[in-house]
C-alpha cells in the first residue's frame, strides 16, 4: 500500500516539474508577449498546483499530519494567475497596441478601459459637442 502511495506522489511530482518546465520553455520560445502570457499563467500554475497536491498527499499519507495549507496556496495561485495576466496584458497594450487599428470595437459608448483612462484627464475639461455622451469626471478620493 505504501508503495502505491509512493508511486502516486512521485507521479504527481514528475508531472508538476514537467509542466513547470513546459511553461517556462513557452516563455522563452513564443514570439511576442501576448502569446508568451499563455505559458506561465496556465502550464506553470498547473505544474505548481500538482507539486503542492503531491506535498499535501505526502504529509497526509506518509507522515500522518493532515494539513490544507497546500490547498490554500494552490487556490491562491489559481485565483491570482488570471489577474496577473490581465494586468500584464494591460501594461503591454498601453505601449504597444493602437486602439483604433489593433483592437475591435467594444460595441458600447465606453471604449477600452486601458486607453480611456489615459484620455480622461484631457477630456474632462473639454466642451462636449452634445452628440456624444459626456463622460463623468472621476471623483477625488
Amino acid at each position: 500500500m505504501s508503495f502505491i502511495l509512493e508511486i502516486i506522489i512521485s507521479a504527481l511530482i514528475v508531472i508538476g516539474g514537467f509542466f513547470a518546465l513546459v511553461g517556462s520553455f513557452g516563455l522563452v520560445k513564443l514570439p511576442d508577449l501576448m502569446t508568451r502570457l499563455h505559458g506561465p499563467t496556465k502550464a506553470t500554475t498547473l505544474g505548481v498546483g500538482s507539486i503542492l497536491v503531491a506535498s499535501m498527499l505526502y504529509f497526509w499519507l506518509l507522515q500522518d499530519s493532515f494539513t490544507i495549507h497546500e490547498l490554500l496556496i494552490t487556490l491562491f495561485l489559481l485565483l491570482t494567475a488570471p489577474i496577473t495576466a490581465n494586468v500584464i496584458a494591460k501594461a503591454y497594450m498601453l505601449d504597444h497596441a493602437d486602439p483604433d487599428k489593433d483592437l475591435p470595437k467594444t460595441g458600447g459608448v465606453e471604449g477600452w478601459a486601458t486607453f480611456d483612462a489615459i484620455g480622461q484627464e484631457d477630456d474632462v475639461d473639454a466642451p462636449t459637442t452634445g452628440t456624444e455622451p459626456a463622460r463623468k469626471p472621476v471623483p477625488e478620493l
Partner: peptide
C-alpha cells in the same frame, strides 16, 4: 519589453514556490 520582464519575475516567483515545496518534501 518591460512587460516581458515583469512576466519573467512573476514566473520566477511561482517557480520559487515549487522549489521551496519540493525542498520541504
Amino acid at each position: 519589453t518591460v512587460a516581458d520582464r515583469v512576466l519573467a519575475v512573476d514566473t520566477m516567483a511561482i517557480n520559487a514556490i515549487a522549489l521551496i515545496v519540493l525542498y520541504g518534501i
